[in-house]
Write a protein that binds this DNA or RNA. Structure first.
Ligand SMILES: [Mn+2]
Ligand SMILES: [Mn+2]
Ligand SMILES: [Mn+2]
Ligand SMILES: [Mn+2]
Lengths: 255, 255
DNA sequence: TCCCAGAATTAGGCGACCCTAAAAGCCCCC
DNA sequence: GGGGGCTTTTAGGGTCGCCTAATTCTGGGA
């Protein structure tokens, strides 16, 4: 008898495509730098900063995130759940389209960026099942479970390897098609073993040994490749979607 | 030197999801009844008639259709091309999701209704190729070619069959999930041979022989099933997308 | 021929997203 | 400890789709 106006549970409408993209972007900013600034989001979403301010206010009023004006933004558990569900869809779609339909790995991100807002959970689970529930997408990024758990890892960059050291490529950014084409061309994929043969000084090229071939790459490219030490094993950190925020997720950086 | 302000070809933005759905609805109204009235579109799109008027004016101003106020609407070649491209996407998606991922045929329409606006042409062609370029979707509707040609057929309804006559089910409406589940349950699919054993008078049930079993169905259900005479062959009419409108496309009705 | 029921359009608004320009706040450096 | 530069927010608009209510048109029957 305390409800002022009765009626059914008042379910609010499902998040729109822009809302899902904003929450994904906040998740990725928090992961990378520990917090999400207006300008980071504006850059990630290709939108004017003023637009971010407006959207962020609305998302905060809907309980998706906390906003301290002039101080940035943080996902609530509710917002994190939407972000991780969207990321799962994106990465399952990328995996399926690449593995089953042969969509090239430099174009699949763009496709998934649209389909992630249109595919039902049921369809995404069918795709995941068809692939045997893969744990990473074609670029090496971890796929959250349907329950919202993700195995984020702290990884070093190929650019920071010591000369003579060997590492395994784990992950490549999926956002730059030209880079992806080039990386594939020189034989680097998630799983590839690489040795850093030498590093020229003053931002000069790095010499890599991939299989039995040596290739020179610029430091900008090398910085985009996330690697694990070949010895290293099981560095994964489990990270629940609905756990209260505690800031313990380590940012990606040099180990 | 005649262009007032120079610049590249001025390509207008791709049609939005609502635009694609409106044009599809106009196509289907024209097919069914020869012309598309505001109220038909409002009913098909679950939208208020005033909204249709507004949208229709915008679509006409963009060259997708011709609008004679108070008289209804007609697709231009440009509008027909968008409609047929969207219908192709929809039907290829339905075929792929059903055949490869096992999405049940009573739920696949809803899924395709969203994905048709998000999937790229490239992806749709990959799906079509994976299936060997099917000519009809899971409900028996013809799939337009990538070039915009569709083989529309004039089909009778099971309800209009003469007692004792045999026919082959060609097509079932994809819009009613409960009907689709029931139709599948009694063993009717596109391709099934049926005999009309008897028809009770005054809107009473029809008795059908499906395989070696007899089933009774109401006249409302029977009216939803499009059939071809078992003898009949190659009644298809080729219908080009970009051909100037001439009103010769026969409406679906009793033969 | 006139009238009227139903169909269609106009009038007036709203919410979601986006933009540019102007104002305000924050913070680091001198 | 006061500026100045960068970041962020506010102010003011715009488009697209949709709605309800009021008005206008059309076509068929009396
Ligand atoms: Mn991606
Ligand atoms: Mn997206
Ligand atoms: Mn359908
Ligand atoms: Mn649709």
């Amino acid at each position: 008898m305390s409800a002022p106006a009765a009626g059914p549970p008042e379910r609010d409408p499902p998040p729109s495509a822009p809302v899902e993209d904003y929450l994904k972007a906040v998740y990725e900013c928090e992961l990378r730098s520990g917090s999400a600034a207006t300008s980071d989001l504006a850059a990630a979403l290709q939108v004017a900063p003023a637009s971010v301010t407006g959207m962020v206010r609305r998302l905060a009023s809907q309980g998706y995130l906390d906003h301290v004006p002039y101080r940035g933004v943080q996902l609530t558990p509710r917002g994190r759940a939407v972000a991780l569900r969207t990321i799962r869809r994106h990465r399952v779609l990328e995996s399926y389209l690449t593995a089953v339909l042969g969509v090239p790995w430099d174009r699949v991100h763009e496709e998934a960026e649209r389909l992630e807002h249109a595919a039902s959970d049921d369809l995404v689970e069918r795709m995941a099942a068809a692939l045997g529930h893969p744990r990473t997408d074609p670029h090496g990024a971890p796929i959250p479970t349907a329950e919202g758990t993700i195995a984020e890892r702290t990884l070093g960059s190929l650019a920071d390897l010591a000369p003579g050291a060997t590492a395994r490529v784990v992950m490549v950014s999926d956002r730059n098609p030209a880079l992806l084409r080039y990386v594939a061309e020189i034989g680097l994929h998630p799983g590839t073993e690489v040795m850093l043969v030498a590093r020229a000084p003053f931002g000069g090229p790095l010499t890599l040994r991939i299989g039995d071939r040596d290739t020179q790459v610029g430091p900008t490219l090398a910085a985009q490749l996330r690697v694990e030490d070949s010895a290293e094993r099981a560095g994964a950190v489990e990270c629940a979607a609905a756990r209260p925020a505690d800031g313990t997720t380590a940012p990606t950086g040099t180990p």
